[in-house]
């Protein structure tokens, strides 16, 4: 591009998906969303790296974390990837009208403010388009609760979307993926990420804790 801005800091995108099958339609959608976002960033002259987290690999460790209160070293590494990411793509199959239990477990074990201000693209897969409102009734409120900046377009892929069965009156799955990727890329570029204070490196001085108490 003629007017591409000077390349700035490399961005990291983490993709978390809860697909179980091999191959998995959820993984397929996750890959497409990541590629769309990376392509949009490249068009803006920004290099981006993608880390793919398959929650299936962490299934046992997630249950253990729920029970013990701490993650295994392997799960901890993935959590650190997510917490350190510039942007997140979160994709789940729809089970019983909502995200899968495995998907929710991962977000249950994150620290309360781990995703605060992080741009997030949410997406889901299911056998039928009748489940598509799970995105706006379940996933979006979850990430809003976590303080994430959810991009406007959430992408739903029903089984028929992978063929010719999509609604001819609506944008195709490929169009929706492209639009969502554009939105996430824009959010990543404009995000002013400042790491929060480290309470262990810079503890609140005790006089302040005492004064707060008397206030």
């Amino acid at each position: 591009m003629a007017n591409a801005p000077t390349p700035i800091r490399r961005r990291t995108i983490v993709v978390v998906h809860a697909g179980l099958g091999q191959p998995s339609a959820t993984r397929l959608l996750a890959d497409r969303l990541a590629a769309a976002t990376v392509g949009e960033l490249a068009a803006k002259g920004i290099d981006a790296g993608v880390t793919m987290i398959e929650l299936r690999d962490h299934a046992q460790d997630l249950v253990s974390n729920l029970l013990t209160g701490f993650p295994s070293p392997v799960l901890q590494a993935s959590i650190e990837d997510v917490v350190g990411a510039d942007g997140l793509i979160a994709v789940t199959p729809v089970y019983s009208a909502s995200y899968s239990g495995l998907f929710k477990l991962f977000f249950d074990v994150l620290e309360r403010d781990a995703l605060a201000g992080v741009p997030v693209l949410v997406a889901a897969t299911a056998g039928t388009a009748r489940h598509s409102l799970a995105l706006d009734h379940a996933l979006r409120p979850l990430f809003v609760y976590l303080g994430a900046a959810v991009v406007p377009t959430a992408v739903f892929a029903a089984a028929e979307d992978w063929g010719t069965g999509g609604d001819p009156m609506e944008p195709s799955l490929a169009d929706r993926i492209a639009r969502a990727g554009r939105e996430l890329a824009t959010a990543l570029v404009t995000r002013d990420a400042k790491p929060g204070p480290d309470p262990f490196a810079d503890p609140v001085p005790f006089e302040q804790l005492l004064a707060r108490d008397q206030g």
């Binding site: 309470p199 262990f200 503890p203 609140v204 001085p205 005790f206 804790l209």
Partner: peptide, 10 residues
Amino acid sequence: SPEIPEQAAY
């Protein structure tokens, strides 16, 4: 909670 070692230290 880092406030507690801070309290002990104080």
